[in-house]
């Protein structure tokens, strides 16, 4: 179990470094946040209101005090209050986070369920028509940015075919069917690109494993091809697939920013865009820290899964 504890410790350290960097970035960059904030309307702010805001934000304190202050609050889960409506950032974030997670979870589920079998099929029947078809499709899917997919889906399904609403959100408890209907388009948008990644990685990883010596051994044992693929090849091929999934969680989380914006999905990423537009610093910092923490934790989970799949990792 030592290796799991070690990974957890490293992850905690990373989260600390990341939040410190976000804090320092906001405070060390030239330009006074208070001044920027007050000049959003276009008029030059007067010195008194700037000073008042600086006091309100604690910007008049020495930087180390500010840092320790926010760090101590961060540890107990307090990320400050939003500048636009005064609500605590943490509670707002926690309200919105599950919706973003739901979106990512649905997308990951769809794309894995469709991507791994497609990749296995393409690797086993190498050069067959099905594999070629999937490969071409994945090439197109990888090249279409997520907001292009989203915009086109809205245009086709909401504007032309009128099969689904253009966007919005209804809690599952209120209207489960409508909730799923509203979820389907943004989830499908994110899933498309991820499907292509998983498909490609499954295919190439399996092709690579099928060349290894131990596959020859498995065949020399007289195992059926099905057993060779499922028991010997796929499990060895899964580790790289997981890595791709983990690396793509980053762009996935980035993708949710655009998808939530397009489909009016009130998740955490949507709140971030809004906060960036409003220069709502505590909200920006809070969102980024939370999403990065999420990212680091997901990577941690993948690392642990990696270790469970491959006994050699545990020994390292």
């Amino acid at each position: 179990m030592g290796w799991i504890l070690r990974r957890i410790a490293i992850s905690l350290l990373l989260i600390w470094v990341v939040s410190s960097i976000v804090f320092l970035a906001i405070h060390l960059v030239p330009g006074d946040p208070a001044e920027v904030l007050l000049s959003l309307g276009g008029s030059a702010p007067d010195a008194d209101s700037v000073a008042a805001l600086r006091a309100q934000l604690g910007l008049d304190q020495p930087i180390l005090t500010q840092y320790l202050h926010s760090l101590s609050h961060f540890v107990v889960g307090d990320l400050g209050d939003s500048l636009s409506d005064g609500t605590p950032v943490m509670s707002e974030a926690l309200r919105r986070l599950p919706r973003t997670l739901e979106l990512i979870g649905a997308a990951a589920l769809i794309s894995t369920a469709a991507g791994v079998p497609a990749g296995v099929a393409a690797a086993v029947n190498r050069g067959g028509p099905l594999g070629r078809c999937f490969s071409a499709l994945s090439g197109l899917a990888l090249s279409t940015p997520v907001f292009v997919v989203g915009s086109l889906l809205v245009m086709i399904f909401a504007q032309w075919l009128r099969l689904a609403p253009a966007g919005g959100y209804v809690a599952f408890g209120e209207d489960p069917l409508r909730h799923l209907l509203l979820l389907s388009m943004p989830a499908a948008t994110i899933a498309l690109g991820l499907w292509a990644q998983i498909f490609r990685m499954t295919r190439s990883s399996l092709l690579d494993v099928l060349q290894r010596d131990f596959i020859r051994t498995a065949r020399a044992k007289g195992l059926r091809e099905h057993a060779v693929i499922m028991r010997h090849a796929l499990r060895n091929a899964l580790a790289p697939i997981l890595t791709v999934l983990a690396l793509n969680v980053g762009s996935l989380l980035g993708g949710t920013v655009l998808v939530e914006y397009i489909f009016n999905w009130p998740g955490l990423s949507g709140a971030l865009v809004e906060a960036v537009n409003n220069r709502d610093y505590p909200m920006v910092v809070g969102c980024i820290v939370i999403i990065s923490t999420l990212f680091v934790s997901l990577n941690l989970l993948v690392d642990i899964a990696y270790g469970l799949l491959d006994p050699r990792v545990r020994a390292r």
Binding site: A25, L253, V276, I288, I291
Partner: peptide, 20 residues
């Protein structure tokens, strides 16, 4: 690189756009 890779690319970009 570990630290920079902790920020999803879009978030890193948004953070910097917020600042500059």
């Amino acid at each position: 690189t570990d630290i920079l890779l902790c920020f999803p690319p879009m978030l890193l970009a948004l953070l910097i756009v917020t600042l500059f």
